[in-house]
């Protein structure tokens, strides 16, 4: 399998009906898969922030950013470089766990700082917040118990408060020359 090139775009959009479909459509009609997607209003409820992770080569992502910028409802786009941003994701998982193996799950939860949300006779629901890699690891480790249901939110991201100079690339429509 070829190495994947994931890009995280933080897209500030008008908080209106249909805007998400326009953004998602731009990727879909070029055959690019959206790896994850998170949308919610910002502190200013006229705007929403879409955090979208896509798997594309480098050249198309520049073109994609320009095409996204052409959408009338898109206000600003920032590509967040992994090393220059803080990414978080939330995962909830319900595991098939009998009483005699509960301690193993508790141990893993403790290591990962996960929280136990619910316990039943033969199942447990655990939540974990963290970097996407950490959640991948956790998912692998709990898989042998038997995953009944698993839900991840998709990542959200913010630029790091830099000690070194910022490396995030920001394109603002007003000065995108």
């Amino acid at each position: 399998m070829s190495r994947r090139t994931l890009h995280t775009l933080s897209v500030l959009v008008e908080n209106r009906a249909g805007v998400l479909a326009r953004v998602a459509g731009l990727f879909a009609r070029r055959g690019y898969n959206i790896e994850s997607l998170a949308v919610a209003p910002t502190d200013d409820d006229r705007f929403s922030r879409i955090t979208v992770v896509v798997d594309v080569e480098l050249t198309p992502i520049e073109q994609m950013v320009k095409q996204l910028n052409k959408l009338v409802n898109v206000v600003k786009i920032t590509e967040l470089e992994p090393r220059a941003s803080i990414e978080r994701e939330l995962c909830m998982v319900t595991l098939s766990v009998d009483r005699d193996r509960r301690n193993e799950v508790l141990e893993l939860a403790q290591i990962f700082e996960a929280r136990i949300l619910a316990v039943a006779h033969t199942a447990m629901t655990v939540s974990l917040e963290g970097e996407p890699d950490k959640i991948d690891d956790f998912e692998e480790l709990v898989r042998p118990f038997g995953i009944i249901e698993l839900q991840r939110t998709g990542r959200i991201a913010l630029a790091k408060l830099e000690r070194s100079p910022a490396r995030s690339r920001s394109t603002n429509k007003a000065k995108a020359s």
Binding site: F47, V72, K76, A176
Partner: peptide, 8 residues
């Protein structure tokens, strides 16, 4: 009404 539309 069009905060995202500013042609250069």
């Amino acid at each position: 009404e069009l905060p995202g539309y500013k042609p250069t």
